[in-house]
Amino acid sequence: MTTERPAPPLRGNEREMLRGFLDFHRATLAMKCDGLSDEDLRRQSMPPSALSLLGLVRHMAEVERTWFRKVINSEDLPLVWSETDYQAAYDASGSTRSEAFAAWQAEVEHSRRIEREAGSLDVLGHQPRWGEDVSLRLVMLHLIHEYARHNGHADLLREGIDGTVGA
């Protein structure tokens, strides 16, 4: 399996730029997992950390679900891997590529639909942990930040598995 990664746009309006960079970072995470077995994807970084590539994919499914479906779309639903424990996603010890990627890709598709259907980047949702309303613009920027940070983790994890470096 080889992931196609779209290049982020060099020009465009704000929404096109945000969408392009978010999709670039989503594809980067998938690329880091290309060609690895379930066992490789579950391999943890170093004790006491339970961080693994599969755990990152599961975590990003939670992030997509929480910010787009729960915050922006006001959907009342549990987390993907637990009712309330965000850390549960990192435990990929019993997970498989097909399970984790199916959940993540489904959440990405929900996120894309919600973003496309929103009238503008100024659409508001409520972030209960902060007790504040937030814009779709903030959500998209937050996800770009979240993916970029975790893609750095993914770089190190992948190098530790088979020596592959770079995006």
Score class of each variant (00 low, 15 high):
Glu99Asn: 10
Ala100Ile: 04
Met60Trp: 03
Tyr90His: 04
Pro78Phe: 05
Ala92Ile: 00
Asp85His: 04
Gly94Arg: 13
Asn73Glu: 14
Tyr90Cys: 12
Thr84His: 09
Leu77Val: 11
Ala92His: 03
Phe68Gly: 05
Ala103His: 10
Arg116Gly: 00
Leu56Ala: 04
Glu99Asp: 14
Gln105His: 10
Leu79His: 10
Arg69Gly: 09
Arg116Asn: 07
Tyr90Lys: 05
Asp91Arg: 06
Ser93Val: 05
Ser74Val: 08
Thr84Tyr: 09
Val108Ile: 15
Ala103Ser: 04
Gln87Lys: 10
Ser82Lys: 02
Tyr90Val: 00
Glu83Lys: 12
Arg113Asn: 01
Glu64Ile: 06
Glu115Val: 12
Arg113Trp: 07
Trp81Gly: 12
Ile72Tyr: 13
Gly94Cys: 12
Ala88Tyr: 00
Val80Trp: 00
Val71Lys: 09
Trp67Ile: 07
Asn73Cys: 12
Ala89Gln: 02
Glu75Thr: 07
Arg97Gln: 14
Glu109Trp: 06
Trp67Val: 10
Thr84Ile: 05
Val80Gln: 02
His110Glu: 15
Glu99Gly: 08
Val108Ser: 11
Thr66Asp: 12
Glu107Gln: 14
Leu56Gln: 05
Gln87Ala: 15
Ser93Tyr: 14
Val71Leu: 09
Ala92Gln: 03
Glu109Cys: 03
Met60Lys: 13
Asp76Met: 12
Arg97Phe: 14
Glu64Arg: 09
Val80Leu: 02
Leu79Met: 13
Val57Glu: 05
Arg116Ala: 08
Arg112Met: 09
Trp81Ser: 06
Trp104Arg: 15
Trp104Leu: 14
Asn73Ile: 01
Arg112Trp: 07
Arg97Ile: 08
Met60Thr: 06
Ser95Met: 04
Val57Asn: 01
Glu64Thr: 11
Trp67His: 14
Ser93Gly: 09
Val57Trp: 00
Leu56Lys: 01
Ser82His: 09
Arg58Val: 02
Lys70Glu: 15
Arg65Met: 10
Thr84Arg: 10
Lys70Ser: 11
Arg69Pro: 01
Val71Arg: 06
Ala102Tyr: 06
Ala89Ile: 01
Asp85Trp: 02
Val57Gly: 03
Trp104Met: 12
Val71Met: 13
Ala106Pro: 11
Glu115Gly: 01
Glu75Tyr: 01
Ala102Leu: 06
Ala89Phe: 00
Val57Lys: 00
Lys70Pro: 02
Asp76Thr: 13
Thr96Ile: 12
Val108Cys: 15
Met60Glu: 07
Gly55Asn: 00
Arg69His: 03
Gly94Glu: 15
Arg65Thr: 14
Ala89Asp: 03
Tyr86His: 15
Gly55Ser: 03
Val63Asp: 09
Asn73Gln: 12
Thr96Asn: 10
Ala89Ser: 01
Thr66Pro: 07
Asp85Gln: 08
His59Ile: 06
Leu79Asn: 02
Arg113Asp: 00
Arg58Gln: 08
Arg112Thr: 04
Ser82Met: 05
Phe68Cys: 10
Thr66Tyr: 15
Glu107Pro: 06
Ala103Thr: 02
Ser111Val: 01
Glu62Gly: 08
Gly94Thr: 14
Asp91Glu: 03
Pro78Ala: 02
Pro78Arg: 04
Ile72Trp: 10
Ile72Met: 15
Asn73Val: 05
Asp76Gly: 05
Ala106Arg: 04
Ser74Met: 14
Ala100Trp: 09
Glu62Phe: 01
Ser111Ala: 15
Ser93Met: 09
Thr96Gly: 11
Glu64Met: 11
Ser111Tyr: 07
Val57Ile: 13
Lys70Gln: 15
Glu115Met: 14
Val80Asp: 07
Leu77Gln: 13
Ser95Ile: 01
